[in-house]
Amino acid sequence: MTKILGRRSLLATAICGLMSAGAVANDLALEEVLVTAEKRESSLQDTPISLLAFSNERLDRFGITDLADVAGLAPNVTITPFPNSRSSLVIFMRGVGNNDSQTTQDAAVGIYIDGVYVARSIGLGSDVADLERIEVLRGPQGTLYGRNTTGGAINLITAKPADEFGVSQKVSVGNRDYWQSLTKIESGKVGQFAGKFTYMESAHDGWVKNTGSGDNFGAEDKKAGRVAVRWDASEN
Rank of each mutant, 00 (worst) to 15 (best):
Y112M: 01
N155Q: 03
A219P: 00
S9W: 11
Q192H: 12
K39R: 11
L30W: 01
T143E: 06
P161S: 01
R138L: 01
T2G: 14
P161D: 10
G63F: 12
G125T: 01
E132S: 02
A21P: 07
L124P: 01
E164T: 15
V167M: 09
S85A: 10
Q105Y: 04
K39P: 06
E235C: 05
F62N: 12
M93Y: 11
T47Q: 10
R8C: 08
I15W: 04
S20T: 13
A233L: 13
S172D: 14
I111S: 00
D106R: 13
G6D: 15
F165N: 13
K222S: 03
S20I: 15
K160N: 08
D100C: 02
H204T: 00
Y112T: 05
K223V: 13
S172E: 13
A228E: 11
G63T: 15
H204F: 04
L30N: 11
G151C: 00
T2I: 12
R7N: 15
S20Q: 03
G152T: 10
N236W: 12
A162M: 11
D100I: 09
R61K: 13
K39I: 11
A153I: 07
G206Y: 02
V35D: 08
V173L: 04
W231T: 15
V77S: 08
G166Q: 11
N98S: 14
P48Y: 08
G212L: 06
A71L: 01
I4H: 10
A108R: 15
S101Y: 07
S213N: 10
E57L: 12
V190R: 07
Q169L: 10
L137E: 05
N56A: 15
D163G: 12
A194Q: 03
V128R: 02
I15K: 13
G142W: 02
Q169I: 06
A108H: 14
W231K: 11
I15Q: 14
S87T: 14
G123Q: 00
S50V: 07
L67W: 02
G174Y: 05
S181Y: 10
L28C: 07
I49S: 03
F217D: 03
I79G: 02
F165W: 14
D205R: 13
K209H: 05
R40Q: 13
I64Q: 10
Y117V: 05
E57M: 10
T13I: 10
R8L: 12
T104I: 06
S126Y: 05
M93C: 14
C16D: 14
E186M: 03
S202M: 08
L89Q: 02
E57R: 10
G225D: 08
L18C: 09
I157V: 15
T183E: 08
L73V: 13
Y112N: 00
L124W: 05
K223H: 12
E38A: 10
I154F: 03
A25L: 10
A228M: 09
L73R: 14
S87I: 04
L11A: 14
A203T: 12
R86S: 09
M19S: 13
Y199D: 03
V109F: 02
G125F: 00
E135H: 02
Q141K: 05
S234P: 09
S213E: 04
G63C: 11
A71E: 15
F54Y: 12
A108W: 07
F62S: 08
I134H: 01
G97I: 08
I91Y: 07
R138K: 13
S202G: 09
I157H: 05
